[in-house]
Design a protein around this nucleic acid. Structure first.
Lengths: 199, 199
DNA sequence: GTCTATATCTAGATAGAC
DNA sequence: GTCTATCTAGATATAGAC
């Protein structure tokens, strides 16, 4: 890892978002800072402010990109899981765990509290599309109402997010669970959830 | 909320732990700081350091107390749920959601990464006892091995922690879900998990 | 479009007065 | 046992040079 400082040539805006993901994967939202992103790219701490007015706007761009990429990953995983609706929804949980383990950008970033007051149109469109994808997958399992489908989405996301949080918080550290192993458990748990009717 | 400064008379050590819980309930671990705890009690920022050598030791005391109280809450909820082992384990998830919604101190605090290097005997004993309680409740559902019971505990905790995280991260904010409503969903989800065999 | 330099703020932690 | 005062470190953000 080089710490040399130099003039950045190219698309710094894109590079800042990319470096933010790397930083999140390394240390989570807790250690995310504009200064650290700049450091990682070898530019001055002032450089990011030419492209984003403040921390929230940079994080908002990361949030939008994460919502988009997570949606893509989820759709791909569902399609790879075959035609059975229950298997397709179960695959969502696995895809979520894998995506967050790889990028560090789960719902705690996509829906970060500090972004609540910054309604960015691009970001809102991505989160809306992601939610639509999830609702559709849940509805296909035979939900009799939107409410029921929504609750199934919530349960699926809760399971997946719960496993990733425990993974990130070091709960599994001693056992050295791999991200793939945890993803498989999240998938199995969601399969149980969807196969058996909820109350 | 008063911000007046005054000499603290009484058990400041206990008051610091108590105020830490209030701070966690308000803003989560992200906004926890020794300075903020002192501010909340109206004492100087130096005062806490007479009772705890550093931030980690204060947080460690909070972690130990949370593990103890959470264990008590879980045992009480299981007992209130009756004799059926599946219902008892399902009640654990509900109790977890309610405890964390009330205190802010869940596994992300109890097993905080920053405490990993500070093996405090008192804290370790509380976390060990909590884990034993959980394993016993899981084993009673008919697990054929310790490994299987452990995985069931992980699944139960993942579900409960997932729901609380989504609650804390504002995912449910727009719908104004109450903590009790979310706790009921966590209970129902865990019931589905334990009733149906996992792979 | 990025740099250096700087102002402001907050937190962790310590020294010495009372 | 708590205070005031202070040091250090890191973050956000801005001003002005190049």
């Amino acid at each position: 890892m080089s710490t040399e400082r130099g003039y950045h040539h190219g698309d710094l805006r894109t590079a800042l978002v990319q470096a933010s993901f790397e930083l999140l994967a390394d240390g989570g939202l807790q250690r995310f800072s504009v200064a650290a992103v700049a450091r990682r790219l070898g530019v001055s701490s002032a450089a990011p402010y030419r492209h984003f007015p403040d921390r929230a706007h940079l994080l908002g761009a990361v949030s939008a990109a994460a919502a988009r990429d997570l949606g893509t990953a989820i759709t791909a995983a569902a399609d790879a899981a075959g035609p059975d609706p229950a298997e397709r929804l179960a695959a969502v949980a696995g895809a979520y765990v894998r995506y967050v383990a790889r990028t560090g950008a789960g719902f705690q970033v996509i829906y970060a509290a500090e972004l609540y007051d910054f309604p960015d149109d691009a970001r809102r469109e991505q989160t809306r599309a992601l939610m639509t994808t999830l609702i559709d997958l849940a509805t296909a399992t035979g939900s009799s109402s939107f409410q029921e489908a929504l609750q199934l989405v919530e349960a699926t996301i809760a399971v997946a997010h719960g496993y990733t949080s425990l993974l990130a918080d070091g709960f599994f550290a001693r056992k050295a669970h791999s991200a793939d192993a945890v993803a498989d458990r999240a998938t199995a748990a969601t399969r149980a959830l969807v196969t058996r009717p909820r109350r």
